[in-house]
């Protein structure tokens, strides 16, 4: 805290950002560089350091000068991520905290080692093919979903018993909603 206090008024941002789709965080730092201009900063990303300037910024957009090159940018915060459009590509970043919480649950939505089958996409439950107590083999179809006219069958990841069905046919569900719970049979069971 002592070090932080010393930086008060100088350090604008010091963040650990994780580009979406990767697990490697990047530490970035932004410090005002008043001598060079009102919107000039020293920017550091990892070992890379340079001078930047933000020109003509408006709501969610602006121009960035970096190394003598000026590029337009757009950004928006969406869910727990910040989306940045620059140079024809959209980049997504999340904070270190969001990365940690996501990593602790970083299996694909519907492939559930825990036996929780969740919706991999928002959509409508078209058909439920199992009920509580049913025994299913690996690969058996459990639920059929439809979203934006695409049909998708969710199957059992391993041989198991259906312990609960948490959805109803015809209902809309959000991405990640729990649909079916499975339990692996005990050894010999």
């Amino acid at each position: 805290m002592a070090i932080d206090a010393r930086l008060e008024g100088i350090l604008m941002a010091r963040l650990v950002l994780t580009p979406a789709g990767t697990t490697v965080p990047v530490e970035v730092e932004l410090q005002p560089d008043r001598a060079s201009g009102e919107n000039a900063f020293r920017f550091r990303a990892g070992r890379d350091e340079c001078a930047i300037e933000i020109i003509g910024s408006g709501e969610g957009e602006g121009r960035l000068a970096l190394d003598g090159r000026v590029v337009p940018f757009y950004y928006a915060t969406v869910d727990e991520q910040i989306e940045v459009w620059v140079d024809g590509c959209t980049y997504r970043f999340e904070s270190a905290a969001a990365t940690r919480s996501r990593r602790s649950a970083s299996r694909p939505a519907h492939i559930a080692a825990s036996g929780e089958i969740t919706a991999p996409m928002p959509g409508t439950i078209q058909k439920i093919l199992v009920g509580p107590g049913d025994r299913v083999a690996a690969g058996d179809a459990l639920v059929v979903m439809i979203s934006m006219k695409m049909e998708m069958t969710l199957s059992a990841p391993f041989a198991s018993t259906v312990t609960a069905v948490e959805c109803r046919a015809g209902r809309l569900v959000e991405m990640g909603a729990l649909l079916v719970t499975l339990k692996e049979p005990a050894d010999g069971g």
């Binding site: 206090a5 960035l64 910040i82 970043f93």
Partner: peptide
Amino acid sequence: ASADVSREALAVAAWASRGDGGLHLAGSG
């Protein structure tokens, strides 16, 4: 999937989030 993260994008992300958690959390607590 690209291994490279644009420096420009990182700079914008840092700037866009400067009011949040940056100075305020680190500096003033």
